Amino acid sequence: MSDARFGRSGPIAGPGVGRHLLIVDDDDRIRELLKEYLAREGYRVTGAAHASAARRLLELIEFDLVVLDIMMPGEDGLSLTGWVRSKARLSNTPVLLLTARGEPTDRIRGLEQGADDYMSKPFDPRELALRIDAILRRAGVKPVAPREIRLGPVMFDMERLELTREGAPLRLTEAEAQLLKTLALNAHAPVERMALSPDKADITGRAVDVQVTRLRRKLEVDPKNPRYLQTVRGVGYMLAPDS
């Protein structure tokens, strides 16, 4: 796979802004390269190394599209595609199969299982990004998220990144504001803990836990028994606003 464009510096406002992708591939290098490249195209990207991890994420989080490797240890991508199509909530989630298999019969099997598109390895990430964009355009316009959300007496403006309580401003650090915005854009759906971490070196997620604790002091009446910023055991955190 060519990765020449991965050296580009800084995020861009690409076609994926507001879209959340799930990358399922047991090859760590490919998974991380795709996460980095697609993030630079504006997508929010979560990775899974095998089908069982992908199932857990798909049951908890609403994704706009799944990029799925076929040849994985354990359950393969064809079986997982069939499972996705069998679930009412996921039946319309687009699936792009990505695999080393290039035989026509394999492509036909993938499409028969309900895949929306198919790419063979090796591939150019630019073509993959274009195909993802085309699939999402065919799938329709993503509903526009509300600009503001209400958490009891607290309001959060997602465009201005401003938090107020009954009209009075509450100070947010940049990290707190970005974390709260990510949770707000995925309101009522659990967000993977490490997906909330801007620091890739923080492999424990401890920095996220610290930011969540600080945010709860600003959002909750009783931070030790949170109503709005909830912990989802084994996954991460979820924001449950009133509106």
Rank of each mutant, 00 (worst) to 15 (best):
A13C: 13
E159Q: 05
D69E: 06
I132T: 00
V210Q: 11
R5E: 11
V24E: 10
I132A: 06
P198Y: 02
K121E: 07
R137C: 07
D76T: 01
P169A: 07
D25I: 13
S9K: 08
V208H: 02
L57P: 04
Y118A: 03
P11C: 11
A49T: 01
A4Y: 10
D116M: 14
T105Q: 15
R137P: 13
R137W: 04
R40W: 12
L38V: 03
G114S: 14
R40H: 13
G102D: 15
D3F: 10
V144P: 10
G82V: 13
T46E: 11
A134R: 11
S91N: 01
G14R: 04
V208Y: 02
M72E: 04
Y228E: 06
S86F: 09
L128I: 00
M71T: 00
P11F: 15
N92T: 08
P15Q: 02
G236N: 00
T173E: 15
A54R: 03
N92I: 13
K142V: 08
N225I: 06
K224V: 06
V24R: 02
L58K: 07
V208N: 03
L57N: 00
F156L: 09
L239T: 00
A145I: 04
R85W: 13
V141I: 10
K218G: 03
A177K: 13
L128E: 00
G18I: 07
R89A: 13
L130D: 05
E103M: 10
L163F: 07
G14F: 07
R193G: 14
A54K: 02
G140H: 08
S86P: 13
E192G: 05
A201F: 02
K121Y: 05
P146N: 05
T93W: 09
M194L: 12
E41W: 08
P223K: 04
P94N: 09
L58H: 03
P190V: 01
P125W: 02
R131T: 01
K121P: 14
D222H: 14
E41Q: 06
L136P: 04
R89T: 09
Y237V: 01
I108P: 15
V45A: 04
T46Y: 11
T213S: 06
D28V: 11
G114C: 14
G7T: 01
G110N: 03
Q113L: 15
D64I: 10
L60I: 03
D242V: 06
M158N: 02
A100S: 12
L22E: 00
R126S: 08
L130A: 08
A187S: 11
A129Q: 05
Y228C: 06
L78C: 10
L130C: 11
D202V: 14
I12C: 14
A187M: 14
D3R: 07
T99A: 07
R227M: 12
R40K: 14
V212I: 08
P104V: 05
I203V: 04
E127N: 13
R126K: 10
T173F: 15
F6A: 04
R101K: 11
L128Y: 00
L130F: 08
F6M: 12
R8K: 09
A88T: 07
L180S: 01
K218N: 05
G7C: 10
P122R: 01
R109N: 09
M71Q: 02
S79P: 12
D209W: 05
A184I: 06
K142N: 07
T99M: 12
V24S: 03
G82Y: 15
L180R: 00
D199V: 10
P15W: 04
